[in-house]
Amino acid sequence: MRVEVASDAFTTGGFEDVVTLMRYFTEDRHDWVVDPRQLPAIECFFSEHTPSRASTYTRFARKASVSARAWTSSRRRERADTISVTADSLADHTADLGRSAKVVVENGDADRSFLLAVARVFGRERVIAAERKSWLEFTHSGGGGELPKRARHEAAGFRLLRRVVFVFDGDRMTPNERSKHEKVAADLRKDAIEGHILIRREVENYIPTKVLAAVKGRQSALTTRISLLKSLIPEQRAHIDIKNGFADKKTKQAVVPAAQAELFATLPPATVKGLREGFGEGLPQLLEREVEAGNVKESDFAALGSEVCEELKALLALIDRII
Protein backbone atom coordinates (compact mmCIF):
# COMPACT_ATOMS: atom_id res chain seq x y z
CA MET A 1 0.00 0.00 0.00
CA ARG A 2 1.05 3.64 -0.45
CA VAL A 3 1.71 5.13 2.98
CA GLU A 4 2.19 8.72 4.09
CA VAL A 5 3.66 9.15 7.56
CA ALA A 6 2.80 12.53 9.09
CA SER A 7 5.59 14.55 10.70
CA ASP A 8 3.94 14.27 14.13
CA ALA A 9 4.47 10.49 14.04
CA PHE A 10 8.24 10.93 14.22
CA THR A 11 8.43 11.19 18.00
CA THR A 12 10.18 9.26 20.75
CA GLY A 13 6.89 7.64 21.76
CA GLY A 14 6.40 6.13 18.34
CA PHE A 15 9.99 5.06 17.82
CA GLU A 16 9.45 1.29 17.61
CA ASP A 17 6.49 1.59 15.24
CA VAL A 18 8.37 4.01 13.01
CA VAL A 19 11.31 1.62 12.78
CA THR A 20 8.89 -1.21 11.95
CA LEU A 21 7.40 0.89 9.15
CA MET A 22 10.90 1.57 7.84
CA ARG A 23 11.46 -2.16 7.58
CA TYR A 24 8.23 -2.53 5.58
CA PHE A 25 9.35 0.26 3.25
CA THR A 26 12.94 -0.88 2.72
CA GLU A 27 11.88 -4.46 1.99
CA ASP A 28 9.36 -3.07 -0.55
CA ARG A 29 6.38 -4.46 1.31
CA HIS A 30 4.71 -1.04 1.19
CA ASP A 31 5.46 2.22 -0.63
CA TRP A 32 6.52 5.25 1.39
CA VAL A 33 5.21 8.64 0.20
CA VAL A 34 7.32 11.52 1.53
CA ASP A 35 6.55 15.21 1.24
CA PRO A 36 9.91 16.94 0.54
CA ARG A 37 9.10 19.46 3.27
CA GLN A 38 9.29 16.61 5.80
CA LEU A 39 12.89 15.72 5.02
CA PRO A 40 14.64 17.94 7.62
CA ALA A 41 12.46 16.62 10.46
CA ILE A 42 12.86 13.02 9.28
CA GLU A 43 16.64 13.33 9.04
CA CYS A 44 16.80 14.87 12.51
CA PHE A 45 14.67 12.07 14.00
CA PHE A 46 16.79 9.26 12.56
CA SER A 47 20.08 10.99 13.42
CA GLU A 48 18.99 11.19 17.05
CA HIS A 49 17.21 7.85 17.49
CA THR A 50 18.82 5.45 15.01
CA PRO A 51 22.32 6.82 14.36
CA SER A 52 23.59 3.53 12.94
CA ARG A 53 20.79 3.47 10.36
CA ALA A 54 20.31 7.20 9.91
CA SER A 55 22.13 7.48 6.58
CA THR A 56 20.22 4.50 5.15
CA TYR A 57 16.81 5.76 6.27
CA THR A 58 17.36 9.37 5.22
CA ARG A 59 18.63 8.27 1.83
CA PHE A 60 15.52 6.14 1.46
CA ALA A 61 13.36 9.10 2.53
CA ARG A 62 14.89 11.30 -0.17
CA LYS A 63 14.26 8.61 -2.75
CA ALA A 64 10.65 8.28 -1.56
CA SER A 65 10.15 12.03 -1.87
CA VAL A 66 11.33 11.94 -5.48
CA SER A 67 8.99 9.01 -6.20
CA ALA A 68 6.12 10.92 -4.57
CA ARG A 69 6.67 13.91 -6.88
CA ALA A 70 6.78 11.65 -9.93
CA TRP A 71 3.60 9.93 -8.78
CA THR A 72 1.78 13.22 -8.24
CA SER A 73 2.64 14.46 -11.72
CA SER A 74 1.64 11.21 -13.38
CA ARG A 75 -1.82 10.63 -14.79
CA ARG A 76 -1.53 6.90 -14.25
CA ARG A 77 -2.93 6.27 -10.79
CA GLU A 78 -3.64 2.53 -10.68
CA ARG A 79 -2.74 2.38 -6.99
CA ALA A 80 -4.04 5.78 -5.96
CA ASP A 81 -5.25 4.76 -2.49
CA THR A 82 -2.85 6.30 0.02
CA ILE A 83 -2.92 5.68 3.77
CA SER A 84 -2.16 8.64 6.03
CA VAL A 85 -0.46 7.59 9.26
CA THR A 86 -0.50 10.08 12.13
CA ALA A 87 0.85 9.98 15.66
CA ASP A 88 -2.60 8.91 16.89
CA SER A 89 -3.00 6.11 14.32
CA LEU A 90 0.64 4.99 14.21
CA ALA A 91 0.32 1.88 16.38
CA ASP A 92 -2.88 0.64 14.74
CA HIS A 93 -1.74 1.35 11.20
CA THR A 94 1.60 -0.33 11.80
CA ALA A 95 -0.15 -3.43 13.11
CA ASP A 96 -2.49 -3.55 10.11
CA LEU A 97 0.29 -3.02 7.58
CA GLY A 98 2.18 -5.92 9.15
CA ARG A 99 -0.68 -8.39 8.63
CA SER A 100 -1.12 -10.37 5.43
CA ALA A 101 -3.72 -8.97 3.06
CA LYS A 102 -6.54 -11.47 2.49
CA VAL A 103 -8.42 -12.54 -0.62
CA VAL A 104 -11.43 -14.58 0.51
CA VAL A 105 -12.59 -17.06 -2.14
CA GLU A 106 -15.00 -19.95 -2.39
CA ASN A 107 -12.40 -22.62 -3.20
CA GLY A 108 -8.95 -21.90 -1.79
CA ASP A 109 -6.95 -24.16 -4.09
CA ALA A 110 -8.80 -23.59 -7.35
CA ASP A 111 -9.36 -19.85 -6.99
CA ARG A 112 -5.81 -19.25 -5.80
CA SER A 113 -4.43 -21.06 -8.85
CA PHE A 114 -6.72 -19.13 -11.17
CA LEU A 115 -5.95 -15.69 -9.74
CA LEU A 116 -2.20 -16.24 -9.56
CA ALA A 117 -2.19 -17.53 -13.14
CA VAL A 118 -4.14 -14.50 -14.31
CA ALA A 119 -1.83 -12.18 -12.36
CA ARG A 120 1.18 -13.67 -14.13
CA VAL A 121 -0.39 -13.35 -17.58
CA PHE A 122 -1.43 -9.74 -17.02
CA GLY A 123 1.90 -8.68 -15.54
CA ARG A 124 0.81 -8.17 -11.94
CA GLU A 125 4.16 -9.29 -10.52
CA ARG A 126 3.46 -7.49 -7.24
CA VAL A 127 0.57 -9.89 -6.59
CA ILE A 128 2.78 -12.90 -7.39
CA ALA A 129 5.61 -11.68 -5.16
CA ALA A 130 3.30 -10.76 -2.28
CA GLU A 131 1.73 -14.22 -2.25
CA ARG A 132 5.13 -15.88 -2.37
CA LYS A 133 6.31 -13.82 0.63
CA SER A 134 3.04 -14.42 2.54
CA TRP A 135 2.16 -10.71 2.39
CA LEU A 136 -0.98 -11.83 0.56
CA GLU A 137 -3.01 -14.93 1.42
CA PHE A 138 -5.96 -16.63 -0.24
CA THR A 139 -8.54 -17.75 2.30
CA HIS A 140 -10.78 -20.76 1.61
CA SER A 141 -14.39 -20.18 2.67
CA GLY A 142 -15.88 -23.46 1.47
CA GLY A 143 -18.54 -21.95 -0.77
CA GLY A 144 -20.55 -18.84 -1.51
CA GLY A 145 -22.81 -19.35 1.49
CA GLU A 146 -19.91 -19.28 3.94
CA LEU A 147 -17.86 -16.62 2.19
CA PRO A 148 -19.46 -13.52 3.83
CA LYS A 149 -18.90 -14.96 7.30
CA ARG A 150 -15.27 -15.74 6.50
CA ALA A 151 -14.68 -12.32 4.96
CA ARG A 152 -16.01 -10.60 8.08
CA HIS A 153 -13.87 -12.85 10.28
CA GLU A 154 -10.74 -11.87 8.34
CA ALA A 155 -11.71 -8.18 8.40
CA ALA A 156 -12.12 -8.31 12.19
CA GLY A 157 -8.41 -9.07 12.49
CA PHE A 158 -7.55 -5.55 11.30
CA ARG A 159 -7.80 -2.43 13.45
CA LEU A 160 -8.22 0.39 10.93
CA LEU A 161 -7.45 -0.94 7.44
CA ARG A 162 -9.68 -3.76 6.29
CA ARG A 163 -7.19 -5.21 3.83
CA VAL A 164 -9.64 -7.87 2.67
CA VAL A 165 -11.12 -8.54 -0.78
CA PHE A 166 -13.82 -11.12 -1.57
CA VAL A 167 -14.35 -12.94 -4.87
CA PHE A 168 -17.62 -14.74 -5.63
CA ASP A 169 -18.39 -16.97 -8.59
CA GLY A 170 -21.14 -15.37 -10.65
CA ASP A 171 -23.28 -18.54 -10.63
CA ARG A 172 -25.18 -16.91 -13.50
CA MET A 173 -26.95 -19.40 -15.73
CA THR A 174 -27.65 -16.80 -18.41
CA PRO A 175 -26.32 -13.38 -19.48
CA ASN A 176 -27.78 -10.44 -17.57
CA GLU A 177 -29.00 -12.71 -14.78
CA ARG A 178 -28.62 -11.08 -11.38
CA SER A 179 -26.16 -13.05 -9.28
CA LYS A 180 -27.55 -14.57 -6.11
CA HIS A 181 -24.56 -13.03 -4.30
CA GLU A 182 -25.45 -9.40 -5.06
CA LYS A 183 -27.15 -8.66 -1.74
CA VAL A 184 -24.49 -10.17 0.49
CA ALA A 185 -21.80 -8.47 -1.57
CA ALA A 186 -23.55 -5.13 -1.07
CA ASP A 187 -23.72 -5.79 2.68
CA LEU A 188 -20.00 -6.56 2.77
CA ARG A 189 -19.20 -3.33 0.96
CA LYS A 190 -21.24 -1.43 3.55
CA ASP A 191 -18.83 -2.90 6.10
CA ALA A 192 -15.86 -1.53 4.11
CA ILE A 193 -14.98 -4.94 2.64
CA GLU A 194 -14.50 -4.63 -1.10
CA GLY A 195 -14.78 -7.41 -3.64
CA HIS A 196 -15.96 -8.72 -6.97
CA ILE A 197 -18.63 -11.02 -8.36
CA LEU A 198 -17.58 -12.74 -11.57
CA ILE A 199 -19.68 -11.76 -14.56
CA ARG A 200 -19.42 -15.23 -16.06
CA ARG A 201 -20.69 -18.38 -14.40
CA GLU A 202 -17.50 -19.65 -12.74
CA VAL A 203 -13.73 -19.22 -12.97
CA GLU A 204 -13.67 -22.14 -15.41
CA ASN A 205 -15.59 -20.00 -17.93
CA TYR A 206 -12.56 -17.66 -18.05
CA ILE A 207 -10.06 -20.38 -18.89
CA PRO A 208 -8.79 -20.03 -22.47
CA THR A 209 -9.90 -22.79 -24.80
CA LYS A 210 -6.33 -23.70 -25.73
CA VAL A 211 -5.64 -24.68 -22.10
CA LEU A 212 -8.32 -27.36 -22.29
CA ALA A 213 -6.21 -29.19 -24.84
CA ALA A 214 -3.94 -30.19 -21.95
CA VAL A 215 -6.74 -32.02 -20.11
CA LYS A 216 -5.90 -35.68 -19.58
CA GLY A 217 -7.95 -38.25 -21.46
CA ARG A 218 -8.44 -39.83 -24.86
CA GLN A 219 -7.10 -37.27 -27.30
CA SER A 220 -9.60 -37.87 -30.08
CA ALA A 221 -12.61 -37.42 -27.77
CA LEU A 222 -11.03 -34.33 -26.19
CA THR A 223 -10.36 -32.78 -29.59
CA THR A 224 -14.00 -33.30 -30.54
CA ARG A 225 -15.26 -31.66 -27.32
CA ILE A 226 -12.97 -28.68 -27.83
CA SER A 227 -14.18 -28.29 -31.40
CA LEU A 228 -17.79 -28.31 -30.21
CA LEU A 229 -17.00 -25.81 -27.46
CA LYS A 230 -15.49 -23.47 -30.06
CA SER A 231 -18.77 -23.60 -31.98
CA LEU A 232 -20.64 -21.91 -29.12
CA ILE A 233 -21.44 -18.23 -29.35
CA PRO A 234 -19.73 -16.05 -26.66
CA GLU A 235 -22.82 -15.88 -24.43
CA GLN A 236 -23.09 -19.67 -24.40
CA ARG A 237 -19.36 -20.09 -23.73
CA ALA A 238 -19.66 -17.72 -20.76
CA HIS A 239 -22.40 -19.70 -18.99
CA ILE A 240 -22.01 -23.36 -19.92
CA ASP A 241 -20.94 -25.70 -17.14
CA ILE A 242 -17.34 -26.19 -18.30
CA LYS A 243 -16.57 -28.81 -15.65
CA ASN A 244 -19.66 -31.03 -15.97
CA GLY A 245 -21.07 -30.20 -19.39
CA PHE A 246 -24.70 -31.04 -20.04
CA ALA A 247 -24.77 -34.31 -18.09
CA ASP A 248 -27.87 -34.69 -15.92
CA LYS A 249 -26.70 -35.59 -12.41
CA LYS A 250 -29.27 -38.37 -12.03
CA THR A 251 -29.63 -39.91 -15.47
CA LYS A 252 -26.17 -38.94 -16.83
CA GLN A 253 -27.92 -38.14 -20.10
CA ALA A 254 -27.20 -34.98 -22.08
CA VAL A 255 -29.80 -32.45 -20.93
CA VAL A 256 -29.85 -28.66 -21.17
CA PRO A 257 -30.98 -27.22 -17.80
CA ALA A 258 -34.42 -25.63 -17.97
CA ALA A 259 -33.01 -22.25 -16.93
CA GLN A 260 -30.75 -22.32 -19.99
CA ALA A 261 -33.25 -23.63 -22.53
CA GLU A 262 -33.48 -20.32 -24.39
CA LEU A 263 -29.72 -19.66 -24.26
CA PHE A 264 -28.85 -23.00 -25.84
CA ALA A 265 -31.94 -23.35 -28.06
CA THR A 266 -29.82 -23.01 -31.21
CA LEU A 267 -27.52 -25.91 -30.37
CA PRO A 268 -27.97 -29.08 -32.46
CA PRO A 269 -28.73 -32.17 -30.33
CA ALA A 270 -25.41 -33.66 -31.47
CA THR A 271 -23.55 -30.70 -29.96
CA VAL A 272 -25.39 -31.02 -26.67
CA LYS A 273 -24.59 -34.72 -26.60
CA GLY A 274 -20.95 -34.10 -27.53
CA LEU A 275 -20.55 -31.68 -24.65
CA ARG A 276 -22.25 -33.95 -22.17
CA GLU A 277 -19.10 -34.78 -20.19
CA GLY A 278 -17.52 -31.34 -19.87
CA PHE A 279 -13.81 -31.03 -19.08
CA GLY A 280 -13.66 -32.20 -15.48
CA GLU A 281 -12.17 -30.88 -12.25
CA GLY A 282 -8.80 -29.22 -11.66
CA LEU A 283 -8.98 -26.77 -14.56
CA PRO A 284 -7.70 -23.72 -12.60
CA GLN A 285 -4.67 -25.73 -11.48
CA LEU A 286 -4.14 -26.81 -15.08
CA LEU A 287 -4.28 -23.16 -16.15
CA GLU A 288 -1.64 -22.27 -13.56
CA ARG A 289 0.69 -24.99 -14.84
CA GLU A 290 0.22 -23.93 -18.46
CA VAL A 291 0.86 -20.29 -17.58
CA GLU A 292 4.03 -21.17 -15.67
CA ALA A 293 5.16 -23.17 -18.71
CA GLY A 294 4.75 -20.03 -20.83
CA ASN A 295 1.93 -21.48 -22.93
CA VAL A 296 -0.71 -18.82 -22.23
CA LYS A 297 -0.78 -15.16 -23.23
CA GLU A 298 -3.17 -12.25 -22.74
CA SER A 299 -4.42 -12.73 -26.30
CA ASP A 300 -5.74 -16.17 -25.29
CA PHE A 301 -8.04 -14.52 -22.76
CA ALA A 302 -8.96 -11.80 -25.25
CA ALA A 303 -10.13 -14.54 -27.62
CA LEU A 304 -12.97 -15.18 -25.17
CA GLY A 305 -14.02 -11.53 -25.47
CA SER A 306 -12.40 -8.15 -24.85
CA GLU A 307 -14.58 -7.69 -21.76
CA VAL A 308 -12.84 -10.69 -20.17
CA CYS A 309 -9.49 -8.90 -20.10
CA GLU A 310 -11.09 -5.71 -18.78
CA GLU A 311 -12.82 -7.57 -15.96
CA LEU A 312 -9.76 -9.56 -14.93
CA LYS A 313 -7.52 -6.48 -14.96
CA ALA A 314 -10.01 -4.64 -12.74
CA LEU A 315 -10.11 -7.60 -10.33
CA LEU A 316 -6.31 -7.74 -10.15
CA ALA A 317 -6.15 -3.99 -9.51
CA LEU A 318 -8.59 -4.46 -6.61
CA ILE A 319 -6.34 -7.12 -5.10
CA ASP A 320 -3.21 -5.06 -5.73
CA ARG A 321 -4.63 -2.14 -3.75
CA ILE A 322 -4.81 -4.11 -0.49
CA ILE A 323 -1.28 -5.55 -0.66
Rank of each mutant, 00 (worst) to 15 (best):
D169Y: 03
V121R: 03
S73R: 06
F301W: 02
E154Q: 12
F60M: 11
V104R: 00
A41F: 04
F168A: 02
L229G: 08
P268A: 13
V291P: 12
E310C: 05
K216V: 15
R289P: 01
V165W: 00
N107A: 13
G282A: 11
R201Y: 13
R276I: 00
A80C: 08
D88K: 12
A155G: 00
L275G: 08
L39Y: 07
G294Y: 07
I42Y: 04
F60G: 02
S141H: 06
A70M: 14
H30S: 12
A254R: 02
R79S: 11
F168H: 04
A155M: 04
V121D: 06
S113H: 09
L21A: 07
V33T: 12
E48C: 03
D171H: 11
R79L: 14
S73Y: 08
K250Y: 13
T174G: 00
L39R: 12
A41L: 09
V85R: 11
K297R: 11
R23H: 13
A70E: 15
T26C: 12
D191V: 00
D187F: 03
F246V: 06
I242A: 05
S55F: 12
G157D: 11
L263F: 04
K243I: 00
E310T: 08
G123C: 06
A265D: 12
L304I: 04
V291T: 10
D96C: 10
A259D: 15
S7A: 13
A87P: 02
A221F: 07
D300G: 08
F25T: 05
F122A: 03
